[in-house]
Computed example of a mutant assay.
Amino acid sequence: MPLSIDRRRALALASSFIAAPWLVPRAGRAAEAWPVRPVKYVNGFPAGGATDTLSRVLCQKLSELSGQSFVVENKAGAGGVLGADAIAKSPPDGYTVGLGGIASNVLAIGSYAKLPYRPREDFTFISGMWQLPNILTAKKDLFSADLKELLAAFRKEPGKYTYASAGFGTTLHLSGEMMNSMAGVQVRHVPYRGAAPALNDLLAGNIDLLFDNLPGSLPSVRAGTIRPVAVTAKKRIAELPDVPAMAELLPGYEMTSWAALVGPANMPPDLVAQINALAAKALNDPWVKQRYADLGATTWPTTTQEITAYRDSEEGRLLPIMKAAGIKPEGGG
């Protein structure tokens, strides 16, 4: 027997109520719980360096606050590009995040002719994490650690001396090439797969100089096993008040490293908000702030909009400096 019009309407209405929960937009529903399992944090530099130490401090606090483990995975190579690529190609579910920032999301653009990812579009910029200056150090038996004397020697014997960095296209590489360009010298660049092996070779006397993030070299400086030459901040820093800023002899010289917590593109906004809130809570924790300060770094929590805009501004500022310093895109990421 055919259904009456009234019965058909009633059944249709009942069906609409059954389907309604599935039709409610995501923004109208409560955010899904996160994290409910361990989170992988990818660091594109090797264990033992400054980025590794700072990342592990933060991940320890994130683990304590969330009740889930944040596991650091070091995927070193190509100045952070390999690690960034692993993040970019991960599912946007919040269970793979990691280290982004000035090296892999800005300087890589001017360093590599071809990258395996798009430095802006293939990432979700969740929060800032830290900022820190770089430092130029010398092996213990180098003839001098005085910046003025070193620059004079570099000018006298072009190409004789070497400086190491954590890799091609890093802020450490740019710090060295800015010195070469602004001082009119030729100190040969020796790139390593991360700061830790570069520091080991400086300690062994196999290279003359090293540009490093401050936290990586500060313990060795304090121990007297390497000698500080200059910092790349605009002015002298509180941790090493007797060490000059490069800008004292090279006006306008300034280079600050910064790091961002990033995930792959297309992460749901409510998930990004949860991770950002957790990161802010961790970065504002007194223990984390003190540990960072002890290492010469400053905690740097931001909104997602602020860190995205900052990345954009750094690209506009630094790519012309790279070009002026003679850094040309080469190879592939």
Results as ranks from 00 to 15, higher is better:
residue 171 T to L: 00
residue 145 A to M: 01
residue 201 D to R: 13
residue 210 L to R: 01
residue 26 R to F: 02
residue 44 G to K: 09
residue 190 V to T: 12
residue 292 Y to N: 02
residue 318 L to P: 05
residue 316 G to P: 08
residue 118 R to S: 07
residue 268 P to R: 05
residue 311 R to G: 07
residue 39 V to F: 07
residue 215 P to E: 00
residue 228 P to N: 03
residue 2 P to R: 12
residue 21 P to C: 06
residue 39 V to K: 03
residue 65 L to P: 06
residue 183 A to W: 04
residue 220 S to T: 02
residue 319 L to H: 01
residue 133 P to Y: 01
residue 208 D to E: 10
residue 320 P to R: 04
residue 23 L to Q: 10
residue 211 F to T: 07
residue 57 V to W: 07
residue 28 G to A: 12
residue 246 M to G: 00
residue 202 L to Q: 04
residue 253 Y to P: 00
residue 260 A to Q: 08
residue 207 I to N: 04
residue 27 A to Y: 14
residue 116 P to Y: 14
residue 64 E to H: 06
residue 93 D to Y: 06
residue 290 Q to G: 02
residue 92 P to W: 11
residue 196 A to F: 04
residue 12 A to P: 11
residue 165 S to L: 12
residue 156 K to E: 15
residue 331 G to R: 14
residue 42 V to H: 09
residue 18 I to T: 04
residue 85 D to S: 08
residue 69 S to I: 13
residue 141 D to H: 10
residue 222 R to E: 13
residue 89 K to M: 01
residue 258 W to L: 02
residue 187 V to S: 01
residue 231 V to N: 07
residue 316 G to T: 08
residue 27 A to K: 15
residue 192 Y to L: 03
residue 131 Q to G: 05
residue 60 Q to V: 04
residue 181 S to P: 10
residue 285 D to N: 15
residue 43 N to V: 13
residue 138 A to W: 03
residue 302 T to M: 15
residue 197 P to E: 12
residue 52 D to V: 13
residue 189 H to I: 00
residue 150 L to M: 00
residue 257 S to D: 09
residue 289 K to H: 10
residue 207 I to G: 09
residue 61 K to I: 07
residue 79 G to A: 03
residue 215 P to G: 00
residue 8 R to S: 15
residue 188 R to H: 13
residue 209 L to E: 01
residue 228 P to G: 02
residue 161 Y to I: 09
residue 167 G to H: 09
residue 234 K to W: 11
residue 27 A to P: 11
residue 22 W to N: 11
residue 294 D to W: 10
residue 80 G to L: 00
residue 121 E to V: 15
residue 147 L to V: 04
residue 11 L to W: 06
residue 219 P to D: 14
residue 182 M to I: 05
residue 318 L to V: 06
residue 289 K to V: 13
residue 254 E to Q: 02
residue 152 A to Y: 14
residue 204 A to R: 15
residue 294 D to V: 15
residue 110 G to M: 05
residue 154 F to I: 01
residue 302 T to D: 15
residue 41 Y to F: 12
residue 6 D to Y: 11
